[in-house]
Design a binder for these strands. Structure first.
Length: 283
DNA sequence: TCTAAGGTGCGTCACGCCTG
DNA sequence: CAGGCGTGACGCACCTTAGA
């Protein structure tokens, strides 16, 4: 769990440009892309057998992050009605917006793992799909958890971005108990699940013990505190995921800006060239 | 070297929305 | 309608950097 300042992940402000040789379309290209953002593969033309494919993340320009209103109350109301990042990213995952309709594009599903993506390019369409490897579960120091531990599994319904794209993926939060009675809970980011030692069993994970009635007042209070612990744990995970999505969304917007600026530049140059051509014909 | 300011991430709370 | 979920807001800790 790293803290401290830093740039936006990878400092990736521009486009990832992939050069693909296409002798006979369609062509299959395999590339490893770290970013998990919903992406569009744009074919930007190319001559001969070389075609340039831009891997860009797209954002819905219509969605704005914040309003200029300074009044907190009003702002809250606005925020309350603002579509969630999940919805926004769903939009991003849906067939591309108008700007990209001109280009050849498709969208990706995203995940938190380093992703191998198969790019398939055809004359007018480029598709790619992700192959998401299973996550590794280990202690923070690298010790695998799987051996010699009693693993308790609890579904944590925090949706991944894959589910944003409609793929429906559920994060499984696993708790493991060591032979010494210590509990291990997941820590760290979403890329690699590491486990840290916890002093108590997370809430909602009930260890069934013989002869312990579940209805005693003491147990009720324990139940309450366990429920709270579980809620906090889930909320912690949800907040983490939410922040990740927010960063993703901001990156989408930034990349969108880059794409639009690029397109604007191209159009201006095109206009300039046409003007010159026209002037030459006139003269 | 020290310190203040700014940036970033995290955990928690509150609240609205969604769903069974 | 209750419970779960997503997310903004807030406070805190830590890091970086610029200026004294």
């Amino acid at each position: 769990m790293s803290e401290g300042s830093g740039d936006l992940e990878n400092g990736n402000q521009g486009l990832s440009v992939v050069h693909v040789t296409i002798p006979n379309q369609p062509v299959q290209v395999q590339s490893v892309i770290q970013s998990n953002q919903p992406s569009v593969i744009q074919t930007t033309g190319g001559t001969g057998s070389v075609q340039t494919i831009q891997v860009v993340r797209v954002a819905n320009v219509d969605e704005e992050l914040s309003s200029d209103d300074s009044e907190a109350k009003k702002r809250r109301e606005i925020l309350a009605r603002r579509p969630s990042y999940r919805k926004i990213l769903n939009d991003l995952s849906s067939p591309v917006n108008k700007m990209d309709e001109e280009s050849n594009s498709s969208q990706s599903q995203d995940g938190d793992h380093e992703t191998a993506q198969n790019l398939t390019s055809s004359a007018n369409a480029v598709h790619y799909q992700q192959v998401v490897p299973a996550g590794t579960i280990q202690l923070a120091d690298g010790t695998p958890v799987s051996q010699g531990l009693q693993t308790l599994t609890m579904t944590n319904s925090s949706p991944t971005s894959a589910s944003n794209a409609g793929a429906g993926s559920t994060t499984i939060v696993q708790y493991a108990q060591g032979p010494d009675g210590q509990f291990y809970i997941p820590v760290g980011g979403t890329n690699v699940q590491a486990y840290q030692i916890a002093t108590s069993l997370p809430q909602g994970v009930v260890m069934a013990t013989a002869g312990s009635p579940m209805s005693s007042p003491q147990h009720m209070s324990e139940e309450g505190s366990r429920k709270r612990e579980l809620r906090l744990l889930k909320n912690r995970e949800a907040a983490r995921e939410c922040r990740r999505k927010k960063k993703e969304y901001v990156k989408c917007l930034e990349n969108r800006v880059a794409v639009l600026e690029n397109q604007n530049k191209t159009l201006i140059e095109e206009l300039k060239a046409l003007k010159e051509l026209y002037c030459q014909k006139e003269g």
